Simulated assay, not measured.
Amino acid sequence: MIRKLTDQDHQQVLAFLSEEPSINLFIIGDIEAFGYDSEFQELWGEFDETDDIKAVLLRFYQSFIPYAKGEFDLDGFISLITQYEQPIQLSGKTEIVEKFEATGELNLGRKQTTFFAECLTDEHLCSSRSTTGLEIKKAGIEDVDQIIELRSTIEEFHMTDDARNMLVKAMETGTGRTYYTAEKGVITACVSTTAENSLSAMIVGVCTRKEKRRQGLATEIMQKLFKDVLDEGKTLCLFYDNPEAGRIYKRLGFKDIGMWTMYRG
């Protein structure tokens, strides 16, 4: 049986998701930040005959994330997703979301499969002393437009219509932060977190202006951001598909824990 989840299900849902806390970072973070009853977010759960959770489906705006530890009602989840305007965005653990692709019933768009990695310790981080001489600042709402403009110049990024709104909401709710460097008032590089929750944070939006690349700006920002988040007792997660970026992340203490697939409608 699939039904919409409510506050009364919270402890059971959190226990289910926490068995793989890094993989479920987005779902856990969104639940902690926005709960079970908002205009832009909904959650459904599939329960077995003993009322134990078998699977969870999150809708965040037009993005959907399913999670299950075994077999689940794929057709039931698809019927929920198709009630919303297509195309949608779908992402999650590769072996789960590829089941949706196989049916051919959803307009999923471009597929991207990446490595999923996590970092549990700051032992590989250097001292926080700057090597570039530039101050690393934490972004505020006043910096959002510049951050979005910089991200839009990165070919590998897939900017959505609600990207600005989501960045503002992350800052306002504490579910995300962005650190950056700037020269003459222009942001030159930035790194962000998203889906921050009580246990973990996802690293996203690592970018540098083309003319400022290979100067170590993004790596220096990551050193600062990683240390601050880890000092708060949280686990860091990220996904990557660029081998060069993967080598940098692994030097900073990340280890691969699985694969993550995203479909961009």
Rank of each mutant, 00 (worst) to 15 (best):
R3Y: 05
D7Y: 10
D9F: 09
D9E: 12
V13N: 03
S18H: 07
E20P: 00
N24F: 04
L25R: 07
I27P: 02
A33T: 15
G35K: 00
Y36N: 05
Y36R: 08
D37I: 05
E39N: 09
E42W: 06
E46D: 04
E46H: 10
D48P: 03
D48I: 04
D48M: 02
A55R: 02
A55E: 01
A55I: 05
V56I: 15
L58M: 15
L58A: 11
R59H: 09
Y61N: 15
Y61V: 10
I65T: 03
P66E: 02
P66N: 00
P66T: 02
A68L: 12
E71G: 00
D75M: 08
L80H: 05
I81A: 02
E85Q: 14
I88D: 00
L90G: 00
G92D: 04
E95S: 11
E101R: 13
T103V: 08
L106I: 02
L106N: 06
L108E: 04
K111I: 00
Q112D: 02
T114W: 13
A117V: 09
E118Y: 01
T121G: 04
E123A: 00
R129N: 13
S130W: 03
S130P: 07
T132H: 03
E135D: 13
I136E: 00
I136R: 04
K137H: 02
D143V: 02
V144Y: 02
Q146W: 05
I147N: 01
E149P: 03
L150K: 08
R151L: 14
R151T: 10
T153Q: 10
E155Y: 11
F157T: 11
H158K: 14
R164H: 15
R164I: 09
M171T: 00
M171F: 15
T178F: 06
K184C: 01
C190V: 09
T194L: 07
N197S: 15
S198C: 12
L199K: 10
L199D: 00
A201G: 08
A201H: 11
M202H: 12
I203R: 10
T208C: 11
R209H: 14
R209E: 11
E211V: 06
K212N: 12
K212G: 01
R214I: 03
Q215I: 06
G216C: 08
L217F: 14
E220H: 13
K224G: 04
F226T: 01
E232G: 09
K234G: 08
T235W: 06
C237D: 08
L238N: 04
L238A: 01
L238Q: 01
E244H: 09
A245F: 05
I248W: 07
Y249Q: 11
R251Q: 15
L252T: 10
L252P: 08
G253L: 12
G253M: 12
D256T: 06
I257Y: 05
Y263I: 07
G265S: 13
G265N: 11
